[in-house]
C-alpha cells in the first residue's frame, strides 16, 4: 500500500485501492491543511483501475503519520458535520410543527 524510499520516510506515495476522487480529493485537502506538509497531490493512474495514488512530502515528519493524522482530522470533521446537521434538522422539524399548529 505504501511505496516510498525506505531511507527517507518523509516522502512517500500511498496507493489506495477501491477509492476514487471522493476520498482522495478530501484527503488532499486535509493533508494540505497540515503545516508539516511541503507537498501533497493525488492521481488516478488509469481510469479502469480502481486505485488512487496519493503523494505526500513533508518537512521532516513521517509521511505515514501525517496521512494518518489527516484521516483522523477528516473523520472528526465528518463527525462534526453529522452532529451539526442532525441538530439543524431536529430544530427545523420542531419549528415546522410549531408553525403547523399556528395554522390550525
Amino acid at each position: 500500500m505504501e511505496h516510498g524510499s525506505i531511507s527517507d520516510p518523509s516522502k512517500s506515495t500511498f496507493s489506495l485501492t477501491d477509492e476514487d476522487h471522493t476520498l482522495a480529493n478530501a484527503l488532499r485537502f486535509t493533508v494540505n491543511q497540515d503545516p508539516r506538509v511541503a507537498f501533497c497531490g493525488y492521481s488516478i493512474p488509469h481510469p479502469s483501475d480502481n486505485r488512487v495514488n496519493i503523494r505526500i512530502q513533508t518537512t521532516g515528519e513521517s509521511a505515514k503519520d501525517v496521512l494518518k493524522d489527516a484521516c483522523q482530522d477528516l473523520m472528526l470533521m465528518c463527525h462534526h458535520v453529522r452532529s451539526t446537521f442532525d441538530k439543524a434538522v431536529g430544530d427545523f422539524k420542531i419549528s415546522q410543527t410549531v408553525k403547523d399548529m399556528h395554522i390550525k
Partner: peptide, 13 residues
C-alpha cells in the same frame, strides 16, 4: 466517508 477514513487508518497501522 468516515468509514473510508477508518479503513485507511487501519491499513496504515
Amino acid at each position: 466517508l468516515e468509514d473510508k477514513c477508518e479503513r485507511v487508518i487501519s491499513e496504515l497501522s
